[in-house]
Amino acid sequence: MAWDRQLLMGFREGAPDALAEVFRQNAELLTRRLRAAAWRGRGFERLRSELELENAVLEVFARAFEPRARGVYDGVRPFEHFLMGIARNFLLEEARIREHSAGINRELEEQVERVLMQDAPVDAEQELVDRELEGLLEQFKRSLSPEELQLFDLRFTQELGQEEAAARIGLSRIQLRRRELALKKLLLEFLKERGYLRGLEAAGWTFVRRSTGS
């Protein structure tokens, strides 16, 4: 990301606007790299959990935004490197906590550095998980009415914004949001029926009901 003087000063001072900007510019990259660490190397499988991954993203950014860390970033070396350095320390500390061991072997360090410093192709095992999901979504689409399918395509296949999708169908944005909500509830029901949510369709999982009509 490019740093101008104003952004750097804002960042150093911890101005919320500047921090938000830095977060937005770097969150995707950090998330991808941490995910790669989870799937590619050994030792960080825990981060295959989305919840744990979110926690890791939070933790790394929180450290990068600590007053002292902000103070040492010079705006010259790439921020990505600075951030990945923090991510590296975080991962190695995690490994140490988990294993209750004082030392981290050199191999693990190298593995972490490799995976954080460059983009890697998607891991085969991870791809399998994604593909299972893709298949489910395809099945879901086949279960939809033409109107539902149109909405699904505009929003999720063509990736149009709500405003634009609404215009295409001739709805107000509020109407579109309502339909989208209904569509997501349908998907939720579908996933439960297919057992994708593993047993969670039992008691206590009947709050969001399939809404017919509207």
Binding site: S49, E50, L51, V129, D130, L133, E134, L136, L137, L187, L188, L191, Y196, L197, R198, L200
Partner: peptide, 11 residues
């Protein structure tokens, strides 16, 4: 469930 639903949404 959190993980799985998150994956669906992201996908």
């Amino acid at each position: 469930a959190y993980d799985r639903l998150t994956r669906v949404e992201a996908q």
